[in-house]
Amino acid sequence: MLTLTYSPPFITKRLESIKKSRTSSSVVVCAAKGPRPRYPRVWKTRQRIGTISKSAKLVECINKLSNVKEEVYGALDSFIAWDLEFPLITVKKALKTLEDQREWKRIIQVTKWMLSKGQGRTMGSYFTLLNALAEDERLDEVEELWTKIFTENLDSTPRVFFDKMISIYHKRGIHEKMFEIFADMEELGIRPTVPIVTMVGNVFKELGMMDKYKKLKKKYPPPKWEYRYIKGKRVKIRAKDLRAIDGSNKDADAGKHEETYQTSNDMHEEADTSSDELDIEANDPSKDVIRHTDQTPNEFYEESKTNSEELEIEANISS
C-alpha cells in the first residue's frame, strides 16, 4: 500500500499562512500607525433628540440677559461647557426661534458668537446675520458684511443676497447702490427675479428714466408661465390665467366681506329695534290697564280671589 507523508515544517508553514490571511482580513493595517479599530468613536455624538427643549432653554437663558457683549458671550460659553461637540443644531433652532420673536439684537449676538467659535460658517448663517443687521438698522455693518461675502465668493454668491441688498437699498431710497448691485448681477449672469425687476423698473419710472425702463422690460419680460403648489403638487399655469384667478378670488372675497358686513348691520338694526320695543313696553303702564279693562268684572273678581287664596296658602306654609 502507498502511504502519503508530509513533512512537519511544511504543515506548520501552511497553518501560519492561513492564520495570517484570517488576521489580515479582519484588521485593517494603516501605513505607519498600526491597526485601526472598527468600532465607532465614543466622543463623536450626533444626537438630535432633545434639541428642541435645549434650544428653548437657550432662548430663555439669553432673553434674561442684558445687551452687554461679555455677559452674553459668557452665558453662551457656560451653556455649552459640558458638551463634547459644538451643539450646532441647537443653536440653529434657537436662532430660528429668535427670528420668529423678532429679537434681532440677540440673533446678531448669537450668530457672531457662533462664527467666532469657527462653527456654522455657511451662507445661511451669513444671510441670517445680514437680515438681522438690516432689521436693526446697522447699515454700515450690512455693507461691510456684504463686501466681505461678495469678494470672497465672487462667482458663487447666491441670488438671495443680491435680492436682499437691492430691497434694503430700495427701502431706504439709496438708488445708486441699488443700480450698482443690479449691474453686478447682470455682469455675473445672474437672472433677477420678477419682484426685483419690478422694483428697479419702478425706480426708473420715478426718476424719469423711461428709456432704461423700456430696455429693462424688453430684456426681462414677465414670464408666461408660473408654478403653483396645489395639494402638494407642482402645477404649471399661465401667468394671465393665474392673474385672472387671483382677481376673481379677490372679488369673491370682497363680495363675501360686503355680504357679511350687510348681514351684521341688519342683525344689529333688528336687535336695536327689538330692544327699543321692549323698553317701550316696560315703561308704558297703559298696556297693563288695557289688559285689565278687556276683562269682564266677574273674571277680574275671580282672578283677584285666586290670587288672595294663593297668598294665604303661602303664608300658612311659611308659618
Score class of each variant (00 low, 15 high):
G120A: 00
T97P: 10
I168F: 09
T157R: 01
Q119Y: 10
D184P: 05
S156L: 13
T128G: 03
N131G: 02
S167M: 06
E187P: 13
T122V: 02
E152R: 15
G124M: 06
T111V: 13
T128D: 02
M114Q: 15
F179M: 09
E137C: 06
Y126R: 01
L98W: 00
L130V: 11
K177S: 12
S156W: 12
L154P: 07
P192F: 11
R102P: 04
E141N: 07
L129H: 01
E137V: 08
M185H: 05
E137I: 05
L145V: 03
R159V: 14
M123F: 05
L139W: 06
D163V: 08
I196N: 04
Y126T: 00
G189N: 04
M178I: 06
M165N: 05
L98G: 01
R159Q: 14
S125M: 12
E143F: 05
P158I: 11
P192H: 07
A134I: 05
V194M: 04
Q109C: 14
E152M: 07
M178P: 08
T128F: 01
Q101E: 13
K171M: 10
H175V: 07
R102T: 07
A134V: 06
E187G: 11
F161Q: 00
D155N: 14
I149S: 06
W146G: 03
D140Q: 12
K117H: 06
M165T: 04
I168P: 05
E143V: 06
A183V: 11
G173Y: 00
T97V: 02
A134E: 02
R159L: 15
D163K: 15
E144Y: 00
I107L: 02
E180L: 07
E103W: 02
V142R: 06
R138N: 10
L139N: 06
F127E: 14
L130C: 10
L139D: 07
G173V: 00
S167D: 03
E186R: 04
S125W: 13
M123Y: 01
W104N: 12
Q119A: 13
T97M: 02
Q109F: 10
I168M: 09
R172K: 12
L115T: 01
R159A: 15
K171R: 15
I166N: 05
W104I: 03
S167Y: 02
L154W: 12
P192D: 13
G120Y: 02
T157W: 02
